Amino acid sequence: MENNHIDQQFNEASKHSEEPTVFPGFDKVWEKVEEKLDQKKEKKKIIPVWFPYGIAASLMIGIGALYFLNKKDSEQPVKPEMAEHKILPEPAADTHIAKIDSTIKNNIKKEKILLNL
């Protein structure tokens, strides 16, 4: 309730004030504002800084791609060649390994005989 009472007091105080609602040169100022709003300014279009670099980079990529595409087309295709099939002779059995194998077998047989006794 108190807030409504304060609002009413402010409204009454503003109605009784003797100040004019507009200042004396308001019409002149308003005409100047309307003139400026009616004038169309031509804005310069600003090119972003990155735009020329983007164009240069895309040109370099395109030229590089065309370079490699043309290079592959100019090469001669590789002709398949048949390799000769040679049969190699089997290597001779190593007598040294055979001798070691027979020695090991004999030792195993001797151990079995000794264990059975």
Rank of each mutant, 00 (worst) to 15 (best):
K43R: 08
L115G: 01
F26A: 14
N4E: 15
G64V: 02
E42W: 00
M60F: 10
S74E: 11
A65E: 01
K36L: 13
V29W: 02
N116Y: 05
G25Q: 07
H96I: 10
T21S: 12
L88E: 03
Q39D: 11
A13P: 00
N4V: 12
M60C: 12
N3L: 13
L37C: 10
E12Q: 10
E34G: 06
K86S: 04
I47S: 03
I47K: 02
D73V: 14
K40R: 06
K36Q: 12
F68Y: 07
E19T: 07
K105D: 14
A57H: 01
M82L: 15
V33L: 07
K86P: 00
E84C: 04
K79H: 06
L88P: 03
L69T: 03
F10H: 05
A92C: 05
S14Y: 07
S17V: 06
T95H: 04
P80Y: 06
K109S: 07
E84L: 12
E111Q: 10
F26C: 06
Y67H: 09
H96A: 14
L37Y: 04
E18K: 06
K28R: 13
I104Q: 01
K110V: 12
S74T: 06
Q76S: 07
I97T: 03
K110D: 11
S58I: 11
K71W: 08
L37V: 08
H5T: 15
D101G: 09
A65I: 15
P89T: 02
D73G: 11
M1V: 15
M82K: 15
A83V: 15
F26G: 03
K32Q: 13
D94N: 06
P89S: 02
V78S: 02
P20W: 02
E111A: 14
E12S: 09
H5Y: 09
N70E: 06
D73C: 07
S102I: 07
G64R: 00
K40G: 14
S102L: 11
E2N: 13
S17F: 02
L115W: 00
K44N: 12
N4K: 09
P80F: 05
G25H: 07
A13D: 04
I47Q: 01
S14E: 12
E12R: 08
L66K: 15
G54N: 04
A56G: 04
K71M: 06
L69D: 01
I47M: 03
W30R: 10
N106L: 14
I61A: 10
I63Y: 08
A65P: 01
T21K: 09
Q9E: 11
N107R: 04
H5W: 07
E81K: 08
K71D: 12
K15I: 08
H96D: 14
E42D: 10
K44R: 05
A56M: 03
E35N: 02
T21G: 10
P52Q: 01
K79A: 14
N4Y: 09
P52E: 01
V29C: 04
E81F: 07
K44I: 12
N107P: 00
M1Q: 13
V29E: 00
E34A: 12
L59N: 05
E84G: 05
I61H: 02
I55N: 03
E34R: 11
L59G: 09
W30F: 14
N3Y: 10
H85P: 07
T21A: 14
N3S: 09
L59A: 12
H85R: 13
N70L: 09
I97D: 00
